[in-house]
Amino acid sequence: MPLEAGLLEILACPACHAPLREAQAASDAESGTDELVCTGADCGLAYPIRDGIPVLLVDEARRPA
């Protein structure tokens, strides 16, 4: 379920405050699970979207590979 464009424009990474982009989780490519990925060069955390709600908690984020 894609997020509204207006919401995506105002969301930022809680760790580094860089903008986020929507992407499909690499580990769940078959299930279509989405996540928000930080666009910061040094950060790159991926935050899950559960039931259409972004979980913007650093403790819940997936570290980049």
Rank of each mutant, 00 (worst) to 15 (best):
A46L: 08
P48E: 03
R63V: 13
L20K: 10
C13W: 01
D28L: 15
P14I: 01
A5L: 08
A12N: 08
S27R: 12
D59Y: 05
A5N: 07
A12S: 12
H17V: 04
A29M: 08
C38N: 11
A26L: 13
I49Y: 03
D51F: 05
D42Q: 14
A41M: 09
E30D: 15
C16E: 01
I49R: 02
C13S: 01
I53E: 03
A65T: 11
E35Y: 11
I53K: 07
A41I: 10
I49N: 02
R21G: 14
C43V: 11
A12G: 04
T33F: 12
L36S: 02
E30G: 05
G40L: 13
P14E: 04
S27T: 13
E22S: 07
G32L: 14
I49D: 01
L36M: 07
S27D: 15
P48K: 10
C13I: 05
R62G: 02
E60P: 02
R62S: 11
A29S: 13
R50T: 14
L45A: 05
A12E: 09
P64K: 06
R21A: 14
I10T: 06
D28G: 02
A18H: 09
L20H: 02
E35F: 09
M1S: 11
L7F: 00
P2W: 05
E9Y: 00
D59C: 10
L56E: 00
D34Y: 13
L57T: 04
C13P: 04
P2G: 02
C43W: 10
P19G: 04
A23I: 15
